[in-house]
Write a protein that binds this DNA or RNA. Structure first.
Length: 837
RNA sequence: GCCCGGGUGGCGGAAUGGCAGACGCGCAAGACUUAAAAUCUUGUGGAUGCAUAAUCCGUGCGGGUUCGACUCCCGCCCCGGGCACCA
């Protein structure tokens, strides 16, 4: 009498093939069912293939997709390839192998890896961002933006990675280093294509409220957009002898116009235009020039290093007029003032801004207190006595009552912001930290920007019928580092005719950044390969939008997730899509660390190869283990030992079925209840509790506790089957159904063996019986002064007085309350009674 | 510096105002076996203790609210992530 072994390899291959033949996961474009669009962040097909982090997110979406399908939804669950990007291009530089070829090879490998996990993707909708039929429409959307003035050319100092030899977007610079290769970025003036994402700043901020996203990601986008409300205030320029007309006044942006009376000097960024306007009036302009050129040599990282002491130089001989006091105040230049934020000029209020305070102390500039704190902080003064913290050790940045502020004296600072702005003829203004998106790259492996430079007509767009502008095949991919793309050397490709005048023209040789293709891929899945993007207006797009659930890593918080929202809003404005936001619910998977608790990396040698895990333990085990490790969104270390627990669990499920098949009447599955009645009732109750728990946990992304509740159930089931009683067939079937999203191969195999012809995934998700899970009894906890002293079985509807009587009669309780007066009794229904004595 | 997230047995973690440590790993003992592995059964936070008797201690630290706090409030410490002279 032997039991067949659980052979995952056979079962998993069998069902992966069968599901494909059945076309089980095809999304129906026209369906009366409610839709559910569940999306994974599509992978970059790297040469390394899949790592264990990928299946974490993919398993979660797969569980939800299968669960939703069984719950009656028409589910769209697609997969594709985000294939433009530097690793493949760098590989081409090294080996001479065309990126197209390397990409195709990498996709083939990673696709087979993904398939080996048995995910329910609708592969008929697979897309690849490097496919000319795909990037045709990436180019098309870019052209629409260009036509609307949202794409523009500019020569501006941008972040440049000397190693990747390309310009970068601000979002791609992490702590002053290149996001990809960690090289320190430098400032470089390069002709760039920019996208006016700043035009959307307010909506990108406000519409975050519409989204069910992790708070953390929302905060990061909020901070990145960095809205601040304040005022623009003009400071007239003065010098002697007075000229017939002075240069235009210096405009500053401030969030604290209430401190205007305390402004004792202005500070300009080294790039500020007024400096050259005043060059003949500034007394020691040579030194100023020296300071400015020195500042320009510094990297952004150096200029914005907080630890560094601020430096600056005074523009001697010229002054500004504080419009509130009418007093002459000095003008300084300092490189801590950023040219690109606000107006590139700040009013310094040393009494109420710590930076200004430090600067004023260093250069002995006047400090005038204008806000009196409600509670004054005192510090030890030099003479030993206490003195006000303001003006001695630090600035006071809080609110308070105005002093030294003319007619505003005594008013509350918050109330005077608009009043003082109005008083000096300023106006309210909003500023954002967000800057326009540097959209061009001086590299080969990206979408060509579909524009042409004509000697006569200027910049002209490529006609829609001539899209896509294909990437030419080249022999050398090496970036030039001159600010030109390697495409500039492909003379044949570069020289073209102007689409307008048919005269000589040159193609734009910059390419789009890595992030372009992923800005609209979720729409491409809906449209499928052949569809034109105009079909965006179609009913079918509006049927599927928005994406209901989006899962991926948090590292894209201010990159892909911000860019895609921006493109979506543009398409929304064009009337092409009907939702203001693309991704309604977002969940981030937590990083999986190596067994040593460190980040997985080749150099540490702690990388887990998913192929080996699947081979040894099976896809179902791999999937369930990654879900069982801990909370989905948290960072957690891998444990090869821990996998065994899941494998044992699945084997137990397998064995329960196997034992039931042994030709011994005692073991057989019976549809009629055969066990002692109470046991089956208990098991059935536990089953329904488990159905409830698993259903709720899937909805709440609590896969780890869903699995633990299934383990509890199987432990019970297994105990009963070991006692050689027959197993109720319905119970086993319902359990297999709730297990199936987690371990689809095993569940489907046993489902078939139980005699079903239809796939388990075509069955309806089981519902739990509310009446069945109601308990008649509960364990009443008896506390004395909040400490548990006893517990006993009690009827669910027991009253407080009954419970108290019951408690008092317990020996243990008697002992504790003997000789004490009962002061108070707290009774919590179905939980406890607490006697305060 | 600012903004998030976190700190619970040997380990991953569970419990969001009501029995701290579910579930899993590991460990220990037992059953099966010539033996081992696998499997099954039992035990497993710490201290005192013959005890599966009883009591005490215990969720980063210090205080508070409450009949009752891992959970709420105040003040710290540590770890992870993000932003960083944004006027």
């Amino acid at each position: 009498m032997s039991i067949a072994k659980y052979s995952h390899q056979k079962i998993e291959k069998k069902w992966q093939r069968r599901w494909e033949e059945l076309d089980l996961y095809k999304a129906q474009d026209f369906s009366k069912k409610k839709k559910f669009y569940v999306l994974d962040m599509f992978p970059y097909p790297s040469a390394e293939g899949l790592h264990v982090g990928h299946p974490e997110g993919y398993t979660a979406t797969d569980i939800v997709a299968r669960y939703k399908k069984m719950s009656g939804f028409n589910v769209l669950h697609p997969m594709g390839w985000d294939a433009f990007g530097l690793p493949t291009e760098n590989y081409a530089i090294k080996t001479g192998i065309h990126p197209k070829i390397a990409t195709a090879r990498n996709i083939k490998r990673i696709k087979s890896q993904i398939k080996s996990l048995g995910f329910s993707y609708d592969w008929s909708r697979e897309i690849n961002t490097t496919d000319p039929e795909y990037y045709k429409w990436t180019q098309w959307i870019f052209l629409q933006m260009w036509k609307k003035g949202l794409a523009y050319e500019a020569v501006v100092p941008i972040n440049f990675c000397p190693s990747c030899k390309t310009g970068l977007a601000n979002e791609e610079v992490i702590e002053g280093r290149c996001e990809r290769c960690k090289t320190k970025v430098i400032k470089k003036d390069i002709r760039q294509w920019m996208l006016k994402i700043t035009a959307c700043a307010e909506r990108l901020l406000k519409d975050l409220d519409l989204l069910d996203w992790p708070q953390q990601i929302k905060e990061m986008q909020k901070n990145w957009i960095g809205k601040s409300e304040g005022s623009l205030i003009q400071f007239p320029i003065f010098f002697s002898p007075p000229a017939s007309h002075f240069p235009p006044p210096i405009v500053v942006f401030t969030t604290r116009p209430d401190t205007l009376f305390g402004t004792t000097y202005l500070v300009l960024s080294p790039e500020h235009k007024t400096i050259s306007d005043l060059r003949f009036k500034i007394l020691d302009f040579k030194n100023v020039e020296k300071y400015i050129s020195k500042a320009k040599q510094k990297s952004d990282l150096e200029r914005t290093n907080l630890a560094r002491e601020k430096t600056g130089i005074e523009l001697k001989g010229v002054f500004a007029i504080n419009p509130a006091t009418g007093k002459k105040i000095p003008i300084w230049v300092a490189d801590y003032v950023l040219a690109h934020y606000g107006t590139g000029a700040v009013m310094a209020v040393p009494a109420h801004d710590q930076r200004d305070f430090e600067f004023a102390k260093k250069y002995e500039l006047p400090i005038v207190e204008v806000i009196s704190p409600k509670e004054r902080k005192f510090v030890q003064g030099e003479g030993g006595g206490l003195e006000s913290a303001v003006l001695t050790k630090e600035a006071y940045e809080g609110e308070g009552n105005l002093v030294n502020s003319g007619k505003f004296n005594g008013m509350e600072s918050e109330m005077t912001r608009s009043k003082i702005t109005k008083f000096v003829g300023g106006k309210k203004s909003v500023n954002y930290k967000l800057r326009d998106w540097v959209f061009s790259r001086q590299r080969y492996w990206g979408e060509p920007i579909p524009l042409v430079h004509c000697e006569k007509c200027g910049i002209v767009e490529v006609a829609e019928k001539d899209l896509p502008v294909r990437l030419p095949d080249v022999k050398k991919y090496k970036p030039t580092g001159t600010g030109q793309s390697p495409l500039a050397d492909v003379k044949k490709w570069v020289s073209t005719k102007c689409p307008k005048c048919k005269g000589k023209a040159k193609r734009e040789t910059n390419t789009m950044p890595q992030w372009a293709g992923s800005c609209w891929y979720y729409l491409a899945y809906i449209l499928k390969k052949k569809s034109k993007i105009e079909n965006l207006k179609s009913k079918i797009v509006n049927y599927w939008l928005p994406v209901d659930l989006y899962v991926g890593g948090a590292e894209h918080a201010v990159l892909h997730l911000l860019y895609a929202r921006f493109w979506h809003k543009f398409l929304y404005d064009q009337g092409l899509v009907n939702t203001p936001e693309p991704f309604m619910k977002l969940r981030n998977q937590g990083l999986i660390l190596g067994e040593d608790g460190q980040k997985m990396s080749k150099s540490r040698g702690n990388v887990i190869n998913p192929d080996e895990v699947i081979k040894k333990y099976g896809a179902d085990t791999m999937r369930m283990y990654e879900m069982f490790m801990g909370p989905f969104e948290e960072v957690k270390p891998w444990s090869t030992k821990g996998i065994i627990g899941i494998r044992r669990f699945l084997e137990r499920v397998w064995n329960i079925y196997q034992k039931s098949q042994i030709p011994n009447p005692k073991f057989q599955i019976k549809s009629k209840i055969q066990n002692p009645k109470s046991k089956i009732t208990d098991l059935n109750r536990l089953l329904h509790k488990t159905i409830k728990k698993v259903t709720e946990d899937i909805e709440n992304f609590k896969f780890n506790t869903a699995i633990s509740s299934m383990m509890i159930f199987v432990n019970q089931l297994s105990a009963i089957s070991n006692q050689q009683s027959a197993i109720n067939k319905e119970i086993l079937e319902k359990f297999l159904q709730i297990l199936s999203p987690f371990a689809p191969h095993l569940a489907e195999e046993l489902w078939e063996r139980l005699g079903h012809k239809k796939s388990i995934f075509d069955e309806a998700w089981p519902e739990y019986d509310k009446n069945l899970i109601k308990e008649d009894f509960f364990e009443l906890v008896i506390q004395i002064n909040g400490k548990v002293r006893d517990r006993l079985k009690a009827k669910v509807d027991i009253s407080q007085s009954e419970a108290l009587e019951l408690a008092k009669n317990q020996e243990k309780i008697k002992k504790h309350i003997a000789g004490r007066k009962i002061k108070k009794v707290i009774f919590v229904h179905k939980k406890l009674i607490n006697i305060v004595a």
